[in-house]
Design a protein around this nucleic acid. Structure first.
Lengths: 204, 204
DNA sequence: ACGTGAACCGGACTGTGGTCCGGTTGCTCG
DNA sequence: CGAGCAACCGGACCACAGTCCGGTTCACGT
């Protein structure tokens, strides 16, 4: 990717020089501002660097590439949702039956897509299946696979988790919502039905 | 996209000037050659133009963008498969029960992904859900929706078709096969099971 | 306080996808 | 057969993602 032994700290590194930390904060703030102002797709990396008062090289060393920067922003927003999955109230968090948690998860991601769709779309647009290797996706995969194992023991949870995550991709969602003008409730109901059928529960 | 009233003829236009047709053939041939020789990702549009003995502008006017060119190549390969879906032997073609046809379709696409994976991957890598608007995808969608309506009347076939197509994306396939080293048989079995469960048939 | 070197910085540089427009070519119709 | 014009051609051009490297700055040990 880039030169240098820095392991690309996403939030805060154990030993990060003060100027580096300051610049990272500046870059994140600038990106957030410009994205909100002009739309994610219309902001170039150079513009972010300029807004942050920093050289382009600094942005790329910090975040690797465009997708990396976008993922860093995403992490902040997504962390709350992940927290809710692990420690939140049922049905999203533990305590509810696996089927209910799966459905709540799907609904949660769909809402997330609706809210941060533009950023999520930018995050997965960067060839070479980078997105599948990312923390957020890995977390979702593990979560869904776990719930599937509990809800439908006979199933190949590894593959099915991927298959259940695929329809929740930002690109498809954006397409269904904008180009096909599909109501969000249809998507949510469709996904819920999908999960019910896969797990083997009667359609609501 | 580009200037000019030409409606981007993908194979042969009603009224296309002789030189234009000749150039398109040259470009397609050059692309095919270079893709096979160096790998799709490693060939630039300029290289294709050069190999074809043509200016870069000509390539872009003909095919719109990189994805357009790749799709044009794809169309040739994919047409045979589409033909088999419409008029081929069961279980892929008509005559077999919808469930069997859905399973055969999935297996067919997976094989297609295995064979032309590189090209299919390049075809869907080009932001702004261009891929979902393309002929091949539209055809698959219609096909799957039709089979779903026949196999499971209560279902929201429109949404479910999208959800069943999503796990067959080239990016996911490439990731599962290369990064996760998942055997193709596991994918095929997993998908078959998915379809059975969604349609409501007993697991084989 | 100060020397040292690793980490960091910035902006010039490269390669590529995509656009533009002045000049050219091949159809069509008189 | 010739003229006219729309369609077409090519390569210069632009914007942007991502790289590189010489100069700078911070942290730490003395």
């Amino acid at each position: 990717m880039l030169h240098g032994p820095r392991p690309l700290p996403l939030t805060s590194a154990p030993c990060e020089r003060a100027d580096a930390a300051r610049n990272r904060r500046r870059i994140v703030a600038a990106a957030e501002r410009l994205f909100a102002e002009r739309g994610v797709a219309a902001v170039s990396m150079e513009a972010i660097a300029g807004e942050a008062g920093v050289g382009k090289g600094t942005v790329f060393r910090r975040f690797g590439d465009r997708a990396g920067l976008v993922h860093a922003l995403l992490d902040t927003h997504e962390r709350e949702f992940q927290e809710a999955l692990i420690r939140g109230e049922p049905p999203l968090g533990p305590g509810a039956p696996p089927l209910d948690r799966l459905i709540a998860f799907g609904r949660g991601v769909i809402d997330e897509l609706e809210t941060h769709g533009e950023i999520l779309l930018a995050a997965e647009t960067s060839g070479r299946w980078v997105r599948f290797d990312h923390r957020v996706y890995a977390f979702y995969r593990t979560h869904v696979a776990m719930l599937l194992r509990a809800a439908a023991p006979g199933l190949d949870a590894d593959y099915t988790a991927e298959a259940l995550l695929a329809p929740l991709g930002a690109e498809l969602h954006s397409y269904l919502r904008q180009a096909r003008e599909m109501p969000i409730e249809q998507i949510a109901r469709g996904y819920e039905d999908l999960v019910r059928r896969i797990v083997g529960a009667p359609t609501a």
